[in-house]
C-alpha cells in the first residue's frame, strides 16, 4: 500500500497544475456520506489571493494526490462549490468529533482525523480511544470497515477492527493490509494483540 496521509495534513497543501503553476491551496477535505472516499477539496487562495476561494476542486479532476502537492491538469479543473458536496444532506462534512461504536456495541472512541490513501479512499480513522478500546485512552488508528455505517451522530465499525488498532501511521499501513487480507479470506499475518 502507498503512503497514508491524515486528512488534516492535506490542509495547506499546494494545488499545482501539470504546467507547474500554483493555483490554490487545500482548505478542507470533503468526504462522501459514508466517509468512504474524498469527493473533493475546498480551497484557499495563496499570496495576494489568500482567503477562501469560491471555486472548489472535485476529486474527479485531481491528477494526483502527492506528498507535497495536489496535482491538477490545469486551472479548468476548478469547479463551483456544489461539485464537491456529498450527495446526502445530513451525512457529509464533519466526520471529526463523531462517536465511533463497534458492531458489538462497544464504544471505540471519537474521530479525530481521517486517514486517506493517495487514490482518495478512506483507509481508516484516527480516534481518541475510549476506555473499552484502550484503557490508557491513547490516540489510535482504526481501519475503516468495508461495511461501515455512518450517520451524523455515529460511525459503526466492525468489532473485529478494534483488533487491528495501531498506534502510529506506519504500523497502521500494515494493520490495514492485515485487516483486508483477513476479510478477503486470506491467511492473516501478525495480528495486533
Amino acid at each position: 500500500m502507498d503512503t497514508l496521509t491524515l486528512a488534516s495534513e492535506l490542509t495547506g497543501r499546494p494545488v499545482v497544475t501539470l504546467g507547474g503553476d500554483l493555483v490554490a491551496e487545500v482548505k478542507d477535505t470533503v468526504f462522501d456520506g459514508l466517509a468512504g472516499r474524498i469527493t473533493g477539496f475546498t480551497l484557499n487562495g495563496r499570496g495576494l489571493l489568500a482567503g477562501p476561494l469560491k471555486e472548489s476542486l472535485p476529486w474527479s479532476a485531481v491528477h494526483a494526490l502527492g506528498r507535497n502537492a495536489v496535482m491538477i491538469p490545469g486551472r479548468e479543473a476548478l469547479a463551483e462549490p456544489a461539485a464537491v458536496l456529498p450527495p446526502g444532506k445530513d451525512t457529509g462534512g464533519a466526520v471529526v468529533g463523531i462517536r465511533v461504536l463497534t458492531d458489538a456495541g462497544r464504544e471505540a472512541g471519537t474521530v479525530r482525523d481521517v486517514v486517506v490513501e493517495p487514490d482518495g479512499k478512506v483507509a481508516g480513522f484516527q480516534i481518541v480511544a475510549a476506555d473499552a478500546l484502550d484503557h490508557r485512552r491513547r490516540t489510535v488508528f482504526i481501519p475503516r470497515d468495508e461495511a461501515l455505517a455512518a450517520s451524523g451522530q455515529a460511525l459503526v465499525v466492525s468489532d473485529d477492527a478494534s483488533r487491528f488498532v495501531a498506534q502510529d501511521l506506519p504500523s497502521f499501513t500494515a494493520q490495514v493490509e492485515n485487516f483486508r487480507a483477513r476479510r478477503a479470506g486470506h491467511p492473516v499475518g501478525k495480528e495486533h494483540p
Partner: peptide, 10 residues
C-alpha cells in the same frame, strides 16, 4: 519535462 510554471518544474 512536463511543465515549468511559477511554482515548480513538473
Amino acid at each position: 519535462l512536463r511543465g515549468l510554471g511559477d511554482y515548480a518544474l513538473v
